[in-house]
Design a protein around this nucleic acid. Sequence first.
DNA 1: TGATAACTGGACTAGCAAGTCCAATTACTG
DNA 2: CAGTAATTGGACTTGCTAGTCCAGTTATCA
Lengths: 212, 212
Amino acid sequence: MDDVTSVQQAAKLTARGAATKARIVTAAAELMLERGAAATTLDDVLAASGTSKSQLYHYFGNKDDLIRAVVRHQAQRIQQDQRPELDALDSLAGLARWRDKIVAAQAAHDQVGGCPLGSLANELAGGDPQTRGVLQECFAEWEAPLRAGLTVMRDRGSLSPEADPAALAEAIMAALQGGLLLAKTHRSSRPLARALDMAIAHVHSLATASPA
Amino acid sequence: MDDVTSVQQAAKLTARGAATKARIVTAAAELMLERGAAATTLDDVLAASGTSKSQLYHYFGNKDDLIRAVVRHQAQRIQQDQRPELDALDSLAGLARWRDKIVAAQAAHDQVGGCPLGSLANELAGGDPQTRGVLQECFAEWEAPLRAGLTVMRDRGSLSPEADPAALAEAIMAALQGGLLLAKTHRSSRPLARALDMAIAHVHSLATASPA
DNA sequence: TGATAACTGGACTAGCAAGTCCAATTACTG
DNA sequence: CAGTAATTGGACTTGCTAGTCCAGTTATCA
C-alpha cells in the first residue's frame, strides 16, 4: 500500500513530473548521505531540490517511502559507479581493479560519507521491515556480480573446488562495509584499503597454481 | 568545556549521584542500541531510567554529552563482554575462541542490534568532531589487544615476519564491523561468521609451519 | 477547444523534543 | 546542629517537523 504509489503513479507520470520526482530523490540522497536519513528534514530536501511540500507528497506517500526510494537510488548509483569493474570480477586482476576503484572513490570524497548504502542500512535495518527488505535486495543485487565472478573462477579451475563463492562474496562485502565504516570514522582510506587487501589476499590463497 | 563537566563533577559525586548517572547512561545505551542515537529522545531515556529532566541535565551538559558517555560505556561493555578471550589472541586457537564468542553473542541478541559501537560510529562519525574523536579512541582501545596478540605471534615466529600486525588487526576489525552490519540487515549471523572466518583463514595463511 | 487529470505553491496544524528554570529535598561537613 | 552543596521533580518555553489542505496552474486528449 506504500509502494503501490510509485508503481501506479509511474504509469501516469509526465516528463516534467518524472523530472521533479528525480530531483527530489537526488537531493534527498545527497543530504541523507551526509547527515543520515533521520537527521534530514523534508524541508531540507525541498530547499535543496527547489520543490514544495505538495510536490513531495504528490510523489511519495510519506518520509519512509522517500527513504526507500533513496535506498534504491543509491544502490543503482553504486553499481553504476563501479562499472565496468563490477562486471569483471572473474580474476585476481579484476578484483584488484575493483578494489582500486573503490579506494579511489572513497579518497575522492575526502574520506567523508562512508558507504551510501551501508550507512543507510545501519540506520534503517532496525526499523521498518519493509525498508529492511529493500536493503536486503539492494545488497544482494550488488553482491551478485562478485559472486558470479568468483563462481566463474572456481568453475574455470582458477580457484580451489572447495572455495565457496557465496561465502567468499559475502565475506568480501563485509570487509568492504567494515572498511568503509572505519574509514569514515578515521577520515582515512587506510582501513578500507587494508580490509580489501586482506579479502583479496584470501582469494589469492585459494587460487590454484594453474591459471587456467 | 563539555567534558570538563564529567571530570569536575566526578570529584563532587555522591554515591547516589553516581548511581543515578549510571542508570541514565545504561538506559540511554540500551535505547540507542535499538533505535539509534538520534531516534532516542531524552524523554525516553528518562522514562526508562526513572529519572527526571533536571537530573539528566545535572549530570550531562546536553544530549551530545550524553551520547559521548554512551559511546564510552558501550566500548567498555564490549571489552568486558569479550574477556577473557580478548586477552588471548596470540594464537589461532585464541582467535577462533574469540570468533565463537562474538558470533554467539550476536546470535543471542536475536540478530538485532548490530555492533553497539559500530552502529553509533556510523551514525555519529559524520557529525560532531569531538564525538568522532571519542569513537576513534574507543576503536583503537578495542583493537589494541588484537594487535598485541598478532604481534606476539609474529615475534614468536608463529606468523611470517612479513605479516603486519597493525594492518592485520585493522582489517580484522573491519571484517567484524562489516559482518555485524550485514548480520543486522539480514537478521542472520551468517555474514558475521563468514567474515570472521575469512579473516582468521587469512591469518592462518600467514602462519608458519613451525608452531613455535 | 473544453474537460479531465497531473502538477504545483505554500499556508496551516498538531505534536513532539531539546533545553530552561526554580522550588524543594536530601546529604555531607565543620 | 546549622549551613552549604548536591540532588531531585516537573512544569514551561521555544523551535522545529511530519503531514494536511486547498486553491491555482499546466499538460493531455478526445
